[in-house]
Simulated assay, not measured.
Amino acid sequence: MPPISRLLLLALWAGVSGCSQLLPAPAGPAVIAAQQAVAEPQQQSLPTLSDVQQQQFAQAKQALQQGDFSAAATQLTSLYNALPQAAGIGYNLALAQWQNGEAEQAQQTLAQLVAVAGHYAPAHNLAGVLARQQGHFRQAERHFQRALQADAGYAIAHKNLAFLYELYLGQLLQAHYHYQQYFSLTQDEQAKVWLALLQQQLEQHDAEH
């Protein structure tokens, strides 16, 4: 992995976060990946939609994919108001709001969503991402853990927990466990790099103590 200057890390963090009030990320082997949007649009948990609603959702999905988050949020707000029990629609609305720089609105949407669909892992995962960005690391930990309680095979939550434990909480053994779980579920080769670098940190820590 090529070396990355701290100045570049902070610049990339600012670009990803879109909010000057968020805490800068500490330097670390997984820092760039950790600051990417580790949450994705969902089509799961959608109810039966009318033809008009299906068209509306398709337009919102296209807007999300094209980066037009304001248009996506407008379409999804209308759908979610009509179908508040639809976890997939509520999640995508929160995702669009977050990507549009409306973190507070995204958190409100997620709070409403988990109140009626507490089993929906993507919602807890996204809530954890938002909490982490705002520096609420233990709250982020709880959300990621709840995502895994809802779905033990939800790989992204394992990755987010690994990032959180390594980069923000300094709990390296816990980070190692969740990197391993993420790799076992995805076979993502990048996880091997993260694990190798983390192992070096663990060995250095053992040598110093």
Rank of each mutant, 00 (worst) to 15 (best):
S45Y: 11
A60C: 12
G90C: 10
A86T: 02
L49T: 04
Q65F: 13
K192M: 08
L8H: 13
T109K: 11
G67E: 08
L164K: 00
N160V: 05
A27V: 15
Q97G: 00
R142G: 07
Q35A: 05
N100T: 00
E189H: 08
L110K: 02
F183M: 00
Q56H: 15
P41Q: 08
Q21C: 05
Q55E: 13
P29G: 07
Y120P: 04
N160K: 00
L202F: 06
A96R: 09
A196L: 08
W98T: 03
W13F: 00
E166H: 07
Q199F: 11
D188S: 08
H136T: 02
T74W: 04
D51Y: 08
T48V: 14
Q59D: 14
Q53Y: 10
Q54W: 07
D68Y: 14
F137A: 06
Q65V: 12
N92M: 15
Q180M: 03
G67P: 12
Q66T: 06
A39R: 01
L110Y: 02
A111K: 00
T109C: 12
Q134T: 07
S45P: 04
P26L: 07
A127Y: 03
I32G: 02
Q75P: 10
M1Y: 04
H143Q: 10
L22W: 12
G18M: 14
T186W: 07
F144D: 01
A191C: 13
F69L: 03
A72T: 04
L202W: 06
A86W: 02
L110S: 03
T77M: 10
Y91F: 15
Q108K: 13
L64Q: 02
A117W: 02
D51I: 15
F69W: 13
T77I: 11
V193I: 12
G101D: 09
Q187R: 11
H119E: 14
Q56E: 13
T77H: 13
A106I: 07
A175Y: 01
A131C: 04
V31Y: 02
Y177R: 15
V38M: 12
Y165E: 06
Q107A: 09
Y179H: 05
T186R: 15
A191H: 06
A121M: 09
L164P: 05
E141H: 02
W194N: 03
H205E: 13
Y165C: 04
T186Q: 10
Y182T: 03
Y120K: 03
Q55Y: 01
L172N: 04
F163S: 03
L8P: 07
G90W: 06
Q201C: 03
G135A: 10
A11C: 06
G153Y: 09
R146N: 09
M1G: 11
D206W: 13
L197S: 10
Q65P: 06
A123T: 08
L173P: 01
Q187T: 09
P24R: 09
R138T: 05
A86P: 00
L197V: 10
Q42P: 06
Q35P: 00
N160I: 00
Q187F: 07
G118M: 07
N100W: 09
Q139G: 08
A155L: 04
K192T: 10
Y177C: 00
Q59V: 15
T109D: 03
L23I: 13
V52E: 09
R146L: 14
A147W: 12
A121L: 10
L172Y: 12
Q99S: 08
Q59N: 10
A127I: 05
L23T: 11
A30L: 07
V31T: 09
